[in-house]
Simulated scan of single mutants.
Amino acid sequence: SLASTSVGAYAGSEIMGGLLHVRVPLWARRLVTLIPALIVLWVYPNPSWALVISQVALSFGIPFAIIPLTWYTASKDVMGDYRDGTAMKIAMAAVSALIVALNFALIYLTFTGVDMPA
């Protein structure tokens, strides 16, 4: 959980600094990324369950990455002549919908305690 927090903090600082041109003090970045990890470890002291919960929490961000990626690669304004063709747009929409649906299923099954068959 702490390892994924440090990777997330580094990735977030690179994106905010390089892509968004936003400067956030180091202490604020560390605080925002470390507090949720510590809360998970406090609420779920079992390390295995804490790892599961942290990965489920990280999966919340998947739709916020895949949907804009699908949108931008299909945009003529963004990609110009290199935008996705119709077949790729359909495939990306289907894959995006599947990933988002599986993500919601993961969240539901994790928090309702439903076990998946082996």
Rank of each mutant, 00 (worst) to 15 (best):
A74K: 10
A118R: 14
Y10D: 04
I99R: 10
V32Y: 12
V52N: 09
A65T: 15
Q55R: 13
A105Y: 09
Y82R: 13
A87D: 12
F104D: 06
T33C: 09
N103P: 05
I67T: 07
Q55W: 10
L34E: 06
P68M: 14
W71F: 12
D84M: 12
N103V: 03
W71M: 05
A105Q: 13
D115A: 13
G18T: 00
A93T: 00
E14F: 02
Y82V: 03
G85S: 07
E14D: 01
L20A: 09
F111E: 02
V40A: 01
P36G: 02
T73A: 04
Y10H: 05
V78C: 09
G61W: 03
V22L: 11
A57N: 12
I53E: 05
S4D: 08
G113K: 14
A101K: 04
P117R: 02
F111V: 04
A28L: 15
L38A: 00
Y72D: 07
P63N: 11
A87S: 14
W27E: 11
A11S: 06
A37S: 15
T33N: 13
I99D: 07
W27S: 08
I99L: 15
M116I: 10
P45N: 11
S59H: 07
T73P: 01
L58F: 14
L109H: 10
L19V: 13
K89M: 09
A28C: 03
A93D: 06
N103Q: 15
I15V: 12
L102C: 12
A9H: 00
L38R: 04
